[in-house]
Computed example of a mutant assay.
Amino acid sequence: MAEPKRVQRPISPFMIGPYYRPQLTSMTSILTRITGNAMIVAFFLGTWWMLAAATSPEYFAQVNACVTSWLGDIVFFLSLWGLCYHFLAGIRHLIFDAGRGLDIPTAEKLGWACVIGSVVLAVLVAVIV
């Protein structure tokens, strides 16, 4: 008896590309992990800045020039956005853990609320502070 031909299927939904169509819920989940790790970079940058202030005025001047440059401003704003996004995504996951919003239309609305809300929240905090 002949063996049936096996169909090649993707092993994981993280094989984004020709095998898997990206969905908002999976992208927001991946983005939550990315922003969580990216906040570690901002933490080290802020720590470097504080340690430079405690070291010497000359070293602080060098570090301060780097941190307050346009590149430093971009890094800190993106870190602020990452913090806002991670916060809102945490609230979204608390809603999911309570068993609410698990249907696809509500999950997508909550995903868009995280993305749009984090941008709005980050801009508001940057303008106020």
Rank of each mutant, 00 (worst) to 15 (best):
P57H: 06
G117D: 09
R9D: 05
L124K: 00
S79A: 15
V123Y: 08
Y20I: 13
T106L: 09
P13M: 07
W81V: 02
L121C: 12
V7T: 14
F43Q: 07
R21G: 02
S79R: 00
G101N: 08
V129W: 13
L78R: 03
V129F: 12
P10S: 12
A52M: 01
N37R: 06
F43G: 13
A61D: 03
L71G: 04
F43S: 11
T55M: 04
W112Y: 13
A65H: 03
P10L: 06
H93M: 14
F76V: 08
D103P: 05
T55L: 13
Q23Y: 09
A52Y: 00
A42G: 15
S12F: 10
V41S: 10
T106Y: 04
P57K: 05
G90E: 07
T32W: 06
A61H: 02
M1V: 12
I116H: 01
D73A: 11
Q8G: 04
A2Q: 09
Q23F: 07
R33T: 13
F14A: 10
L51T: 00
I30E: 10
L88R: 08
G99T: 05
S79C: 05
P57S: 13
L51Y: 00
A98H: 09
F60P: 00
W49H: 11
V120Y: 05
V75N: 03
I104M: 11
G72K: 08
A98C: 12
M39H: 03
V63E: 00
Y85Q: 01
P105Q: 11
A107L: 07
R9E: 12
V67Q: 08
M39C: 08
A42W: 14
F43L: 15
P18Q: 10
G72M: 10
P10N: 11
G99N: 10
A54Q: 08
T25W: 06
A52Q: 01
R21Y: 07
L88A: 07
I128E: 09
G111D: 04
L24A: 12
G17E: 06
T55W: 15
H93F: 14
L45D: 08
I40K: 05
L31W: 15
C84F: 03
A113I: 08
V129N: 08
V120W: 05
R92A: 08
P57R: 07
L71H: 07
P18Y: 09
T47N: 02
Q62E: 12
M50A: 14
L51W: 00
T106F: 06
V119A: 12
G82H: 05
P13H: 10
V41N: 06
Q62G: 07
L51M: 01
E108F: 09
C66Y: 12
N64S: 15
S79I: 01
S69R: 03
L71W: 14
F96E: 11
M15H: 13
T55C: 04
M1N: 10
V127K: 07
F14W: 15
V7I: 15
R9G: 01
V7Q: 13
T47F: 14
I116A: 09
L102A: 04
I91G: 02
V67C: 03
I30R: 15
